[in-house]
Design a protein around this nucleic acid. Structure first.
Length: 153
DNA sequence: AGTGAGCGG
């Protein structure tokens, strides 16, 4: 069950999935420090990506590339009022990048959305729902590439 | 543009 994360859902035993939401990925990362003898520099070096604070906006990954924004909205709307749902697509090809965002109208609903959808199946794939990090500001003024993370004002 | 981690234009 080590490689059960990004496999097609059909390949995953249902019994293993019942209790395996986002927690798994996080546990593998955060618990790495407990096995520092396996990776000596993991302790202080690996910040283990801090989880974003609660938000009405969710980052949803692990999506089937056939899942549309509409399908995303429909699925998450079972657990709250969805203000916006969008599958991120490649600008030129139009194909899904396999992740997206779901914005609920309230924090309560977004919490219920995570509880209801994280680790669940959508279009045959186990998806992950978590609070989105604050979105990067959009600056259409010039063609400059966006600044690196942590270097914004 | 090989199914796969990721935080959008």
């Amino acid at each position: 069950m080590a490689m059960a994360m990004r496999l097609p859902a059909i390949a995953i035993a249902a019994t293993e999935m019942a209790s395996a939401p986002v927690g798994l990925r996080r546990l593998f990362c955060s618990n790495a420090s407990k096995f520092s003898f396996l990776s000596p520099q993991a302790n202080a070096e690996t910040p283990a990506r801090p989880q974003a604070e609660p938000s009405t906006n969710l980052f949803v990954s692990g999506l089937s590339k056939r899942t549309t924004s509409e399908g995303l909205r429909t699925a998450f709307a079972q657990f709250g009022e969805v203000a916006d749902a969008k599958v991120v697509t490649d600008r030129v090809s139009g194909y899904s990048k396999g992740f997206g965002f779901v914005r609920y109208t309230t924090l309560e609903d977004s919490a219920k959305g995570i509880a209801g959808m994280d680790g669940k199946f959508l279009d045959g794939w186990v998806i992950f729902a978590e609070y989105a990090r604050p979105r990067e500001p959009y600056r259409p003024q010039n063609n400059m590439p966006p600044p690196p993370y942590g270097n914004r004002y």
